[in-house]
Design a binder for these strands. Structure first.
Length: 1013
RNA sequence: GCUGAAGUGGUGGAAUUGGUAGACACGUUGGACUUAAAAUCCAAUGUCCAUUAGGACGUACGGGUUCAAGUCCCGUCUUCAGUACCA
């Protein structure tokens, strides 16, 4: 009986599928446990070995929980809307739905072959209309909600309208736009319906607003900061400008405080919570209004340091600030406009990251200090961002380093308001241990007192108040793309209207091209059938638009995070019962929220924040029962690729005459001809590495010149020369040595290159066909480097070939064995033999050529010790998600049991259950060989019995001044004094001390003895 | 820049509360088996010094606390991730 992993794995994958072994029930006596992976975007490239890392970890945990008696929900699906499919569609004209479907098939096949215990019956796809119907539905709920700061939750918009009808908006305490005029009930009731709609839009949780975007006119589209390199588009290198655009936004800022507080209730890593805290960026301070001299306008700023109000010596506005054009004086106009134009070309990230370049322009205008009434010059500078706070700052150069640098650069006064602080070199930014001075009524106070008083005095003047500010900005929700959820929105006189939920889904229309229109409208602007008929409640042809009953539909689509912000609820419902609901009440009640969520840390401030926001909204509006979506969250690290390099020696020929004749055509051609004759040479790594180019050049000439200047080559050069005797070959030198990526599959565990394989490669073989490889000790060694796994670096390792060569169980074990789950670590296929050998050893423990060896022999004390040691360690490891160490533990256990020649069923049967979450196929196979007819997947996890591990003695390390010199075996129950006596009397101790008397002897029973002196 | 991680042999990594640094693997070297190769098995393997016994050094770098530091504290450097329209 041999370990035929291919057929074993196929057999059990088929068995699990046929028997629906991992189908979760919404009705069970067992406690529930919900394990979720961040679902994948199905890219065209398929899975590489890095992708399944988190899935393997969650699968181990899910399987472990089943052994522990839980009803486990472990679903999987696809985040199938997204840019790459759209890009591909633009390039090839293929419908993204078609390519997405193909990609999903590949993903599914690849996932299946790794043996995951997913309940595929609950699969979701965000691009499926039956799914995005509910994404659209949630969007409508957001539109129909406002945030009541008094009750601290979202309410239906009707409750707001009722308030307006009775009290106007004076008593309403809502999260809303800043620029809302007060109105009375009477005024409200007299507004036209359109006017009322405009006002309500300022309160809704999703609303239309002007937002700054990176606009690329040439591509006719908005770009992510990511897609901009040095101010031009990554694709095509077109100019990009900052531009305002009307877009849907999500009022996530309304939930800032709850998103912050909620972090204390969930079991996420501290670093992740810290990221979200910083992202939300709560700061307590004051808002201050500055009057602008000679204008009616005021400039609002937020400051965390109201105590430094007398240190203000200028103000800085973001160049995009709406007041800039208004207040700029005619003398400064030209400079200001030039500066604004320059800034528009810089990305926000650029402006944030670059603190060294200080730039700005004086507007010529002055603000009035609220207390001293002194004029304060108003500047613009791109270190102030329009989207942060109010887009304006009161600059206190003595207390803020950026303000300080700005003031120094432009020679603006830096008044010192800190008693005894030295500000000759830098600002004094600390709040602590300093008293305020030169500050009128704040003199002599500390930060706390002065802030309080400053706020009070500002309030008296009506020019400020205490305020809590959040860095968290409302999230832009519109995308000028095709491959996303359409909005259930049409426009009547430019006012957005929601389509009734009964008519959802609004399906993506067909377009002939996936590009923006010539007029710069999003791709949906190309759709011919994209208008809403309010009578038939259907999408109809655009030419029917009459603006009375038939209206244009929204042309934007939703962003990638829309579908992923609620999908975890969709899995809770059986696919069969999903028709009328996003998930039934019963299902939501039973599964509550995700118990364990595993995914990448790159989602820290995107998906993981937006999901929490949507869940809070859904809870407020009574659709779900939980405040948080993910109870426990683990970030898996990335698996990096180990790229392989060959070193190409680039030779260059210089014919005589080049210098005299210049580079005339003939010489050039001659040079080219010779260079063509020179072979391409690749040198093995160690022959090149560590040498400078000139060192290498000498070395090469000495050792290998014959390799490249063969008789043949020289003869050919002679032939060329015949036409012109003035040309003589004078030198062939090494121009440089290039490091070139080669496909990692041609490299073995010892970094040796399979030259024949490379030469026969379908894609690149031609490049190497005539190449000469200079070997060291008979082999060509490649260079290696760890980089992100990517197609372009040729370091992608496909799990398909791994599964074929070593099996899914080997892959699963090895991925876990690589290192801690959360850490980034390089992949090296060579190491998989370790995991594979372990499985072979495991198999041999149970079976040999004659069949099964397991029998009813009574286990020995050693057998039991090994087993229980393993149970204890593995259980603790799984609970703490330390999967790499449990793989080592299995290796140790199998090594020990092999040495002990253990054949006892009492040991080997529980061992299978321990290993089954990690290597489920081999475990199922041996389990059935042992006579079981049911799957191992719900077999109870073995119980740990400490009595097998009791030791009677301990190998004590005896150290001198902290350095371990020898060990000494002593009984566990020996007293501290006896240990000391025994150790001191030992001959090795005497030898170590060499006559010295120790100052101190430290004995920690059960641990260590340390002799000092 | 800001925010969050990480740095241990040739490589991936281990080290429960501060208590034997390098478990477990990969690789390398040597050996057994074999006509040979593969597979398998055995042994050695942090660096340096030493014939041995043994010793010195050693967890990115520089300090500190402690009987004892990979682990705690202060400072520095390097790498990676996120930075709001990649998913």
């Amino acid at each position: 009986m041999t370990y035929d992993f291919n057929s074993i794995e196929k057999k059990w994958q088929d068995y699990w599928a046929k028997n629906e072994t991992f189908k979760a029930s919404n009705n069970s006596d067992k406690p529930k446990y919900y394990v979720l992976d961040m679902f994948p975007y199905p890219s065209g490239a398929g899975l590489h070995v890095g992708h399944p890392l988190g899935y393997i970890a969650s699968d181990i945990y899910a399987r472990y929980k089943r052994h522990k008696g839980f009803n486990v929900l472990h679903p999987q699906g696809y985040d199938s809307f997204g840019l790459p499919a759209e890009q591909y569609a633009i390039q090839t004209g293929q419908h993204p739905a078609v390519t997405t479907e193909t990609n999903i098939k590949t993903y599914r096949r690849q996932l299946d072959q790794i043996g995951f215990s997913f309940d595929w019956s609950r699969e979701v796809r965000t691009s499926n209309p039956e799914y995005y119907k509910w994404t659209q539905w949630i969007f409508i709920q957001l539109f129909e909600s406002w945030y009541n700061n008094d009750t601290n939750k979202s309410e239906a918009i009707d409750t707001l309208i009722s308030k307006f009808e009775v009290e106007g908006n004076a008593t309403v305490n809502a999260a809303c736009d800043d620029n809302i005029e007060p109105f009375t009930a009477e005024e409200w009731n007299n507004y036209t319906s359109e006017e009322q709609q405009s006002i309500l839009l300022k309160y809704r949780l999703t609303y239309l607003a002007e937002t700054e975007v990176n606009w690329c006119p040439a591509l006719g589209t908005v770009l992510a900061n990511d897609e901009i390199v040095n101010g031009v588009s990554e694709r095509g290198g077109h100019p990009v400008v900052r531009k305002k655009m009307t877009q849907w936004s999500m009022r996530i800022s309304a939930y800032a405080e709850r998103l912050l507080q909620g972090l204390d209730t969930i079991d996420w890593t501290d670093s992740l919570k810290e990221s979200q805290r910083n992202w939300i960026g709560k700061s307590v301070g004051a808002s201050v209004s500055f009057n602008v001299n000679g204008h009616d306008d005021i400039i609002d700023v937020f400051t965390t340091r109201p105590d430094t109000i007398f240190g203000v010596s200028f103000m800085t506005l973001a160049p995009e600030h709406e007041l800039v054009s208004k207040i700029t004086t005619t003398e400064q106009k030209e400079a200001v406009e030039a500066y604004i134009e320059k800034t528009a070309k810089r990305s926000e990230r650029d402006r944030m990251a670059d603190v060294k370049t200080i730039s700005g322009v004086f507007t010529g205008a002055y603000a009035e200090h609220p207390f001293s009434k002194e004029p304060i010059p108003i500047w613009i500078g791109d270190y102030v961002l329009a989207s942060y706070g109010t887009g304006a700052v009161m600059a206190v150069p003595c207390g803020d380093q950026r303000d300080y640098d700005f003031a120094k650069h432009f020679d603006i006064a830096i008044p010192n308001i800190f008693e005894g602080a030295d500000i000759s070199e830098e600002a004094y930014a600390s709040k602590d241990n300093v008293k305020i001075t030169n500050s009128d009524f704040l003199n002599g106070m500390n930060y706390k007192k002065a802030s309080k008083l400053a706020i009070y005095q500002l309030e008296q003047l009506g020019q400020g108040e205490g305020k809590t500010n959040y860095r968290l900005r409302d999230a832009v929700f519109s995308r000028q793309r095709y491959w996303g959820e359409p909005f259930p929105v049409y426009y009547v006189n430019d006012k957005p209207q929601m389509i009734d939920a009964a008519h959802l889904p609004i399906r993506l229309p067909e377009v002939e091209k996936y590009l923006p229109t010539e007029e710069g409208e999003p791709p949906l602007g190309r759709a011919d059938v994209w208008a809403w008929d309010t009578e038939t409640n259907t999408v109809v042809s655009n030419d029917k638009i009459n603006n009375t009953t038939i209206h244009p539909l929204e042309l934007n689509t939703m962003p990638g995070w829309a579908g992923s912000s609620w999908y975890f609820f969709r899995y809770m419902e059986d696919a069969a019962n999903r028709d009328g609901v996003f998930a039934s009440e019963d299902a939501l009640k039973y599964w509550e929220n995700v118990d364990l969520y595993i995914g990448g840390s790159e989602h820290a401030t995107g998906h993981l924040l937006y999901s929490r926001f949507w869940v809070k909204l859904l809870k407020d509006r009574g659709f779900v029962n939980v405040e948080e979506p993910f109870k426990k969250l683990i970030n898996q690290g990335m698996i990096l690729g180990t790229s392989a390099f060959v070193y190409r020696v680039k030779l260059n020929a210089n014919p005589l005459g080049t210098y005299e004749r210049g580079d005339d055509k003939k010489t050039k051609k001659y040079t080219e001809e010779i260079n063509k004759l020179l072979p391409s040479i690749y040198i093995s790594k160690d022959l090149f590495e560590g040498k400078s180019l000139s060192e290498f050049s000498d070395y090469f000439k000495e050792n290998y010149s014959k390799t490249y200047l063969t008789k043949e080559v020289l003869e050919k050069i002679e032939l060329l020369k015949e036409n012109d005797s003035s040309l003589t070959l004078i030198s062939i030198h090494i121009q440089n040595v290039d490091k070139l990526h080669v496909k990692v599959q041609y490299v073995n565990a010892s970094d040796e290159l399979d030259i024949e394989g490379l030469k026969n490669d379908g894609e690149f073989g031609e490049d190497f066909k005539d190449a000469e490889f200079i070997l060291e000790q008979g082999v060509y060694k490649v260079g290696r480097d760890v980089e992100k796994m990517s197609k372009s670096k040729y370091n992608v390792v496909n799990p398909d070939s791994i599964c074929e060569d070593y099996g899914a169980d080997s892959l699963r074990l090895y991925e876990m064995f690589l290192g801690p789950l959360e850490q980034y670590k390089p992949w090296n296929t060579a190491g998989i033999t370790g995991a594979h050998n372990f499985l072979k050893k495991l198999w041999k423990l149970y079976a040999n050529d004659n069949g099964l060896k397991v029998n009813d022999t009574k286990p020995t004390a050693d057998n039991l010790k090994t087993l229980h040691k393993t149970i204890k360690k593995v259980e603790a490891d799984i609970e703490s998600f330390s999967f790499n160490t449990s793989v080592s533990t299995f290796m140790i256990a199998v090594n020990e049991l092999t040495t002990q020649k253990c054949t006892s069923k009492d040991i080997l049967e529980p061992l299978l259950v321990l290993i089954s979450p990690y290597a489920p196929h081999i475990a199922e196979e041996l389990w059935s060989q042992l006579g079981h007819t049911e799957s191992i997947s719900t077999a109870p996890f073995p119980k740990f019995d400490a009595s097998h591990l009791i030791e009677s003695s301990k190998e004590y390390p005896i150290s001198f001044n902290g350095k371990m010199r020898f060990t000494l075996e002593l009984p566990m129950d020996m007293s501290k004094d006896d240990i000391e006596k025994t150790v001191m009397a030992h001959e090795k101790t005497i030898a170590q001390l060499d006559g010295r008397t120790p100052k101190k002897v430290i004995v920690v029973p059960g641990k260590i003895v340390n002799i000092v002196g």
